[in-house]
């Protein structure tokens, strides 16, 4: 149980990281995130099954393609409507609709779509059998978080990211181009989403409808954790993740969604900026 809760939490966190990164840096709420997750899954599937490429190559290709797609999305669409919150939401959501429904139209529905696991088999930990894939998710998630930390604290681009996140105008005067940074943040955010898809999707099948679920999960976790705060996202994933597993084992798996719902409402009522929302955001939000 302890182990399942951990893994469930980590999956939630991994799903949310990309969304959170984009929002934290450029302030764009990318509602196309869920769609991108699913599209990444289908791209990988197509590369593996139809073109017969090796697994890792396909995965890498999907991540790159999705990242580029994110950047183009910013350059072509979002850049023109930057700052108009409603338009941003409508545009990204419309992109999600187009992508997901197009997939549905082409016929990517059914149970035959699933990605292969990286390593088969399972091991016993604390009396529970756990697939190696799940352990791999754990390891990779930690890796992503560490990489993200190193990136934002030690590379030039990463530091520019943080600058923009903190104060767009000051950064502008220091010669940082916010549009470039924002498009990078979209790209990297989307790539993270694709990465999450490739490691998480092998646990089940790829369905178009789960695109919406991914978005909901990412949103819930980010809202509870405090948008833009990576650490908050991780904590929030653990709270929601464990709460879900606890209800699933002791009450019924049907009620997990209620637990998330209550968690969100309670936390927001008590602390409107989320668990670890920044002061600056607090001012914007309350």
């Amino acid at each position: 149980m302890l182990v399942y809760g951990l893994i469930n939490s980590v999956i939630l966190a991994l799903m949310a990281l990309g969304f959170n990164l984009t929002f934290g840096i450029s302030g764009v709420a990318n509602f196309a995130y869920g769609a991108i997750y699913i599209v990444a899954g289908f791209i990988t599937w197509t590369l593996i099954e139809k073109l017969g490429l090796p697994h890792l190559v396909s995965a890498a290709a999907a991540i790159v393609v999705i990242g580029l797609f994110g950047m183009f999305l910013y350059k072509l669409v979002l850049k023109r409507i930057r700052g108009l919150v409603i338009s941003e939401v409508i545009a990204t959501f419309a992109v999600a609709l187009v992508a997901l429904e197009l997939l549905r139209y082409i016929g990517f529905i059914g149970f035959r779509y699933s990605l292969p696991v990286f390593i088969d088999g399972s091991v016993e930990i604390l009396g529970a059998y756990v697939d190696i894939q799940r352990l791999l998710i754990l390891a990779l998630s930690i890796l992503v978080v560490v990489a993200q930390y190193l990136f934002t604290h030690y590379t030039k681009l990463g530091l520019a990211f943080r600058g923009i996140a903190q104060d767009e105008h000051t950064s502008l005067s220091l010669g940082i181009n916010p549009d470039r940074i924002a498009s990078w943040s979209m790209g990297i955010g989307c790539s993270l989403g694709a990465f999450a898809a490739i490691v998480i999707l092998p646990l089940g099948t790829i369905t178009v409808d789960s695109g919406y679920d991914v978005l909901i999960n990412a949103l819930s976790v980010c809202i509870v954790g405090g948008l833009g705060s990576t650490f908050g996202v991780i904590i929030a994933s653990f709270i929601i993740g464990y709460a879900q597993i606890l209800t699933a084992t002791y009450i019924s798996s049907h009620y997990t969604i209620i637990v998330s719902l209550v968690a969100i409402l309670v936390i927001l009522a008590l602390k409107p900026s989320g668990l670890l929302g920044h002061q600056k955001e607090l001012e914007e939000r309350v």
């Binding site: 919150v85 209620i258 309350v286």
Partner: peptide, 28 residues
């Protein structure tokens, strides 16, 4: 409970609520 939220934050909550209620009715 979320009436203090503004802009996009309020929007995100309102987006997930109906979907969650749907699940709630399904579950209960």
């Amino acid at each position: 409970p979320v009436i203090r939220l503004r802009g996009i934050y309020f929007a995100m909550v309102t987006l997930i609520l109906p979907l969650m209620l749907m699940r709630l009715i399904e579950a209960t």
